[in-house]
Design a binder for these strands. Structure first.
Lengths: 195, 195
DNA sequence: TGGCTGACAAAGATTGAAATCTGTCAGCTG
DNA sequence: CAGCTGACAGATTTCAATCTTTGTCAGCCA
């Protein structure tokens, strides 16, 4: 028997769960698989996560947290709001597209988890909307943008760019005209935003 | 035997197919059901439609054609382009929402057919984009709008309002804040469009 | 004693044999 | 002879029997 890999922690379980999800996909990954990967019985996994759903939700949360860190740097950065907004939207689109393109199976796995855990996704959405609202508000403060309500405007920007960040549309992100379409939408929105 | 209901025509078959789809849903509706509804053998149906897929595609086309007629009146109407654009987008959203709300099952059936017949849907999309481009172009001609390329701008307007017309989002159309969200996106886009 | 095991019941997924459906066509019928 | 029928082969779907998975818990062991 291999030396017991130290105490069983939630972190180690999450790591193993991600591995198992990568290997088998969301449909075939079982709690027994996770336990086997860790060299313990599946009963032990239930000591740390009450249900399989809770385990998958925790994985989803980790995944989304990693994603939003990339963007907060831009939102909180310096320079003209228009620049930051442009870069933020482009970075969001680029990150999603990269993930969808690099490993489509893993991305499909993630989409499946996201569908299951709409609550967690909603919380993540709130975080991103706050970042957008921060940029808009700073633009308004500088006199660059005209917007009554930064939060409502952030929401409008989010909705209007759905085709370029909603995973539902991932299959369209390979089309050659997608970059032109994205540029056109951005331009229209930024024109609408300027004071 | 009931009197043979006149000659068997494509139109009568389509009518019967819609009935059967309404009754049984897209998963259970069979060619034999359609034939039974018409009082003929299923072989006769194949005399008019080469395959079941072709039959369903013809139904899809009819469905979409009815939908786009409602809108072309607005696009080709008179008055300021901004007004027409606003009304066109609102009418599109209202029509979709009404259909999705009135008979969710029938709407789901339609969505299923639309998924199967992406080619037909793409042709319908082209028609709608042309209507949008017409409005934009007339606005540019009148000096109301500033847009380099009416077709590209039409596409941008379409993409930016996806959340309010893409059936994928139908479940969100019941939320109370959806009208405010729609108004906000419209406003932003129209501001961006004005000369 | 605290953490882990593994047998277990209930829920859910898989499988393959039987039933149904699609698409064809030789021939019937008015 | 034009239009329809119905038997048929192959493809697809259904359904019930079987197997797997989830979640619990009494008891083991370090």
């Amino acid at each position: 028997m291999p030396p017991p890999e130290n105490p069983l922690t939630p972190a180690r379980i999450l790591e193993a769960t991600e591995d198992v999800l990568r290997r088998y996909g969301p449909a075939k990954a079982t709690v027994v698989d996770v336990a086997r990967a860790l060299g313990v019985s599946h009963g032990s996994v239930y000591r740390h996560f009450a249900t399989k759903a809770a385990l998958r939700e925790a994985v989803t949360e980790r995944w989304l947290d990693r994603e939003h860190d990339e963007l907060s740097a831009i939102a909180d950065g310096k320079g003209p709001a228009e620049d930051r907004l442009r870069r933020w939207l482009a970075a969001l689109f680029a990150a999603k597209r990269r993930k969808a393109g690099d490993d489509p199976e893993l991305f499909a796995t993630f989409m499946e988890l996201a569908r299951e855990n709409s609550g967690t996704v909603a919380r993540y959405l709130t975080t991103l909307l706050k970042q957008l609202a921060t940029i808009v508000a700073s633009g308004v403060a500088d006199g660059e943008f005209a917007a009554r309500d930064a939060a409502a405007t952030a929401r409008a920007l989010w909705d209007a760019t759905a085709r370029f960040h909603d995973p539902m549309y991932a299959s369209e992100w390979l089309a050659p005209e997608i970059d032109a379409d994205f540029a056109e939408v951005c331009e229209l929105l930024l024109r609408g935003l300027r004071a």
